[in-house]
Design a protein around this nucleic acid. Structure first.
Lengths: 163, 163
DNA sequence: GATCGATATTTGAGACTGTCAACTATAGAC
DNA sequence: GTCTATAGTTGACAGTCTCAAATATCGATC
């Protein structure tokens, strides 16, 4: 802790620019997510779902089918990727492709009855936080929720107030 | 909101059990991370690195080589996976395998000079938060940092106070 | 110091994710 | 009707990741 040259530069980068709390917060969120990854994967495995499949399932609104293109948008991935994921979930009877009466090009993806059941379980299971989050004080947890709510976009169906 | 049966169950699961702030916080963190994923991938692409490669680079401590098994632990993935990632980074001259004088089985992964440079840039770039985080008030950002710091494990080298 | 069971790393096979480019079918405009 | 744009699918390919099997080395034991 004595040569400002290399040492300081490395330290500043390592701690992700301490002068900007937004950058630091983001780095911490990424790290936290990463440290929960193992448990997330394990949860998915319990349902014989890959992370991508589970996330797609989670993204679906049980009460409202969405076109595949919307899914591609929500998952920020290529449309052709969604085709493959839906194929697998459809093969297991969790989702089905429905025609859109207004546009015969689009296929609406809807959860089946069994899909809704599984989705509910998956969502519940994936919400299980790593121990380090559980260990925070109730106050910290509530503050976290309050702040994070401002920072996340609303899920697929809800357009900030619509229902 | 009238039939407690299906409706309530689905709603409770969908909002990630509002009664437990830890669960809700975790769900929000996952969502937030996901919404920053696209930008993260783009940042990695700028350096011609995959997300996994960038993350491995980021995990390395510029001042201290670590055995591959530690990396596997830190990335929570199989050791054989680390072999492949290190192969690619080594081919580009960012890391090198060094012998461990104490145990000839282990290979210590060290950043090269160019690897240290790239790592610093990558770390800096990946710390760039999505707009929604940037948009939070300074107070919220600082609270976030304060709380999140308690919830993340220290990085590879630092054993909670050692240096 | 030879042997045995554990550990670090590598290799190869195989599943899955994800991208791109090409294709089909349909929509909407002119 | 013809043209251009869009939704979804397909096939080729790169990358990640896991598992099981191999190799080298360690540490302890006889």
């Amino acid at each position: 802790m004595s040569q400002p040259t290399k040492r300081a530069r490395a330290a500043a980068a390592a701690s992700a620019t301490a002068e900007d709390p937004a950058r630091e917060a983001w780095s911490l969120i990424v790290r936290l997510f990463q440290c929960g990854k193992a448990s997330t994967m394990a949860s998915c495995a319990e349902f014989d779902l890959s992370a991508a499949q589970a996330y797609l399932l989670q993204t679906l609104d049980p009460s409202k089918p969405v076109p595949m293109s919307s899914l591609a948008g929500a998952l920020s991935c290529d449309a052709s990727n969604v085709t493959g994921l839906v194929d697998k979930l459809e093969a297991r009877g969790f989702v089905e492709r429905q025609p859109d009466p207004n546009d015969r090009r689009v296929k609406m993806i809807a959860l089946t009855a069994s899909g809704k059941r599984v989705r509910a379980e998956v969502v519940d299971r994936l919400a299980t936080p790593p121990a380090s989050v559980e260990a925070l004080s109730k106050t910290d947890q509530e503050d976290l929720v309050r702040i994070l709510k401002k920072a996340v976009a609303p899920p697929l169906g809800r357009a900030a107030g619509a229902e």
